[in-house]
Design a binder for these strands. Structure first.
Lengths: 221, 221, 221, 221
DNA sequence: AATGAATGAGTCTTCATTCAT
DNA sequence: AATGAATGAAGACTCATTCAT
C-alpha cells in the first residue's frame, strides 16, 4: 500500500516555463495538486494555489482535468498506483516466511517515514466516505496482488511450521498496515498529547523495533 | 482514547427554542459543531450550517466561542475529555493481566464501532499538523492515566509470568489503538478497494476476533 | 397584460445608503434587477452589476433571493403582477362594447409606449422556453380576470348587435396584444430594415391609429 | 419575413470529418451557430459549444468569421436572406386581392409553425437594440420587395372594390406579421399562463382560423 | 441574551480569444 | 487549412466575521 517513491517536486527544478509542453504541464499540475490535496485536504486545497504553484494558467487545470474533483481523483489513483508498484518490487517469495513478513512490515513502516502523502490523501478521502474514490474505474481490485502474496507467505509458513494456524491474509495485511499507519497518521496529535516529538529519529527507531517484534510474535507458530 | 458515549443529537429532541437559555444554547452549538467538524473537516464545516442546525443565530457562535477555530478547539477538547472519562471507567486493576489487556482491546474496538466522531476529528487535526490542538492548555498530559494503567498491567503480567518481557506501556498503547483504529479510520476506502462492505456486521465481527487474538499473541510470554 | 406603471428607478433618487433597511434594500435590488434583466436578458445580466447599481454588497442578493434564478423569477412575477393590476383598473364594464375594446386596445398600445420592460422580460423568458416561469406557483392563472372581462364585452356586443358572432375571448385577447406587441418588441430591427426611426412620435401615432382601426374592423358586426 | 426553409442540421448527416473542406467547414459552423444563437441567445451561445457541435477546432470559427459577433451577424443576415427568398416564391400577383392576402397570412403563420429560429434570433437582436444588425451593410433595405408586393395587392383591391380604403402597405405588413408572430414568440409563457399546451395541434389550428378571419375582416371593404 | 443585516475577500469555474505548430 | 495549448478577465456564488438593534 505505501508508496515507495515520494512525489518529486517539479516546481523546484523546473526550467523557465516551456510553451506548449502538454505532457509537462499536465504532470506539473498533478504533482502540485498531490502536494496541495495531501497537505490541505480536498476543501482546503485551492485551485488558485495549485495553478500558481504549477506556474500555469488556472484555465489549464480545467483543460486537462475538467474539474477540481476529477483532478483530485486522478491524484488519488496515481497515489494508489505508486503504492502498488512499490509493493510489487518487494521480492517476498524467495525468502523464508517469517523473514518475508518482517521485510514487508519494515518496508511499510519505512515508506511512511519517507513520505506521508498517501496517508494524508486517505485521511481526506475517508472523511468524505470515499465519495470520490467510489467513482474510480480502476482502483477497486488494485490490492489483490499484495493480499495474494501475503496469502502465499502464510501458506508456506504453516506448511513449514514457522507460522501459526488460522491467519487470514487480508486481516493480517490490515493489521500490519494498521500498526504502522496509526503512529504516522496521528503523529502530530500524539506529539502534543505525549508532549514529545514523535518525528524525532529516536522515537521513530524505538517505534520501528516495537512494531517488528510485535508483528513477529503475532504470526509465528 | 475512544469515547464511550457518542454525541447525542440535541436537535432531534429539542423543545421549541427557549429564549435566554445560556447553557442550552452553548451545548446545542457544541453538539452540532462536533458533528459538522467530524463529518466535514475543519474547512468543510460552515458556521452558517452549524448555526442553522443548532437553530440559533449565527452571531451566537461568536458570542460563546469567539471564532470558528476556538469552537473547533473546544470540540476537540471535549472529545478528548469524553474519551478519557470512558477509559477511566474500565476496571482493569481487578482482573488478570491478559484478561485486562483483552478487555481494553475489546473496549477500544467497540468504541469505534459505536461512534467514529473522534477518529474523524483526529484525522482533520493531524492533516493540519495539530495546529489547533497545540494551542490547548489542557490536553497535553491527558493520556497519562491510561498509559499508567497499562504500565501497571504489564508490571503485574511480567511478575506473574503471563506477559513477555520488554514491553513498553506507551508503545503497547499505540499498538492496540492502532490495530483497532486503522480498520475504522479507513473503512470507506477499504470497502472500495476490497469491493466489499466493511461496515457489515460480519466484517466487523471477523475483524474483532482477529484483533483480539493478535494482540494477545503479541503480549503473552 | 402590459404594465401600467413602469419600474421606478430608485437608484436615481436614493438617499445615502441606509444601514439596516431590510425592505428598502430588497426593493432596491429588485428594481435594479428588473432593469438589468430587461435590458440584457438573463445571461447578459450580471449579479455584480446588479449589486453595484443597487449600491449593496453582492452577498445581499443571495441573502434576499438565494440565487440569480430566484431573483429573476421574482422579477418576472412582479412584472406580471404589475400588468394585471393595471388592467384591473380599466373600467370596461360601464361603456359600450366597441368603446370598451377600443379603450383596451389603446391602453395596451400606450402601456408599451411608456415602458417595454415587460416585453423584454417576456422575450428572454420565451427564449429559454419559460423554463423559469414554469416554476412559479402564482403565475399560472393570473390572466383569467382579463380574459373574463373581454368575454363579457363580447357577450354584451353580440347581444346588442355591435360585435360579430364567433369571437373567442382568449383568441381576441392574443390578437389585440399581438398587434400592439410586435411593433414594439421588434422596434429596433424594424427601424433598421425600414431605415427609419420607429420610435419617433410620428411613427408611433401612425401605428396607433392603424391598430385601433384594424381591431375595430376585426370585431364589429 | 419568415423563413420558408428551416436550418437543416448538417451535423446529423455529415460524413466523417473531411480534411480541408473549406466550404463544408464554414457551412457547418454557420448551421450550428444558427441553432445555438436561436436557442440560447447571443450571450447564452458559447463558442466552445459551437465548435464541439460542428466538430471543428475552435480556432476555425475565428478563421472563417473572425469573431463571435461577426459570426452572429452572418447568422442574422442569412436568416433574413432565407426569409426574403421564401416570400419571393409566393405568387401573389396572379390571384384575387383578398385571396392574395389570405395566402400571405397563411404562409406567414405556417412558416412559424415549421421553424421559429428566426423569431428567436429577432428576440435576441431586439433585446440588444439591434446593436449588431445595425452594422450590416446588406440588410437595411431587404424588406421593400414584400412591402411593394402588398402595396400592389392593396391597389388592386381598392380598384376592384374588394379592399377598403386607407390601408398602408407597411402598416398592414406589420399587422399581419404581428398577429401571427406574438402567438409563436410567446408560446411558452402563454402555455404557462393559460395552463394549456399552445403547441398542441388543436391550439395551433384554432389560432390559425382566428387569425385568417381577423385579417380578412380587417382589410375587406 | 439574542437577532438579522451587512461586508470584503475569496472560490470554483467559464469565456472569447490568441499562440505555436 | 487545421489543431491543441495557453491566457486574462470575469462570473455566480460562498465564507467567516462584524454591525446595529
Amino acid at each position: 500500500m505505501p508508496d515507495g517513491k515520494s512525489v518529486t517536486d517539479e516546481t523546484m527544478t523546473a526550467k523557465p516555463v516551456r510553451k506548449r509542453d502538454s505532457a509537462g504541464t499536465r504532470a506539473r499540475i498533478l504533482n502540485v495538486a498531490t502536494r496541495e490535496f495531501a497537505n490541505k485536504g480536498y476543501e482546503g486545497a485551492k485551485t488558485d494555489d495549485i495553478a500558481d504553484r504549477a506556474r500555469i494558467n488556472k484555465r489549464m487545470i480545467y483543460h486537462y482535468f475538467s474539474s477540481k474533483e476529477q483532478l483530485y481523483l486522478t491524484v488519488l489513483e496515481a497515489a494508489y498506483d505508486r503504492a502498488r508498484s512499490a509493493e510489487q518490487k518487494l521480492e517476498l517469495e524467495q525468502v523464508a516466511p517469517l523473514e518475508a513478513l518482517t521485510r514487508f512490515t519494515e518496508f511499510t513502516f519505512d515508506s511512511f517515514v519517507r513520505d506521508r502523502t498517501f496517508i494524508n490523501l486517505l485521511a481526506t478521502e475517508n472523511r468524505q466516505r470515499a465519495k470520490v474514490l467510489k467513482k474510480s474505474a480502476q482502483v477497486n481490485t488494485m490490492n489483490s496482488p499484495v493480499i495474494d502474496a501475503i496469502g502465499r507467505i502464510i501458506a508456506r509458513g504453516t506448511a513449514d511450521g514457522s507460522i501459526r494456524d488460522g491467519l487470514d491474509a487480508r486481516q493480517l495485511w490490515i493489521t500490519i498496515i494498521g500498526i504502522c499507519y496509526f503512529f504516522f497518521s496521528n503523529i502530530y496529535t500524539l506529539s502534543v498529547i505525549f508532549d514529545s516529538d514523535m518525528e524525532a529519529a529516536g522515537s521513530i527507531a524505538e517505534r520501528r523495533a516495537h512494531v517488528v517484534e510485535f508483528v513477529l510474535r503475532g504470526v509465528k507458530a
